[in-house]
Amino acid sequence: MNAPQRFALIRQADATGVSGTGHVLDGVIFHTGQVVVCWRSAFGSITIFENWEAFIGVHLQAHPENRASLVFLDDESKEV
């Protein structure tokens, strides 16, 4: 089994004006393929995605104007 992989979402802009810019969420990809994210806001809400593609669709593809990038914290050679 693969170990969980941690990542961070970094935004250059915030089209909705809700969650801000910079390091806005932390996430983990589990061996099942499920993704769990926690927003770095005062509320720290948590969301579970069925798979990586669902997470990417909501947080990168749906809002390209945010110019978001992902940083994988357990393997610095991976950056999206």
Rank of each mutant, 00 (worst) to 15 (best):
I48F: 07
R67W: 01
E65M: 03
D26Q: 15
V24I: 14
V80C: 06
F43R: 09
D26K: 13
G27S: 11
V35I: 08
R40S: 10
R67F: 03
F72W: 05
W39F: 07
V24Q: 08
K78I: 10
F55M: 01
P64K: 00
Q12G: 14
V71K: 09
N66H: 10
T47I: 14
L70S: 06
A62Y: 00
F49D: 02
H59K: 06
E76D: 15
E79I: 10
H31K: 09
E65A: 04
Q5S: 13
L9T: 05
V36K: 06
E76C: 13
T16C: 01
A15R: 12
S45Q: 15
L9H: 01
E76M: 14
G44D: 03
T16D: 05
G17N: 12
G27T: 12
G27V: 04
H63F: 10
Q5E: 15
G22F: 04
A54L: 08
G57C: 08
P64A: 02
V35T: 09
C38L: 12
E79W: 07
N66I: 09
D26C: 14
V28H: 04
E50R: 15
W39Y: 14
A68K: 06
T47W: 09
G33E: 08
S77F: 03
T32K: 11
W39P: 03
V35K: 01
F55W: 06
L70K: 05
V28Q: 06
T32I: 13
G44Q: 00
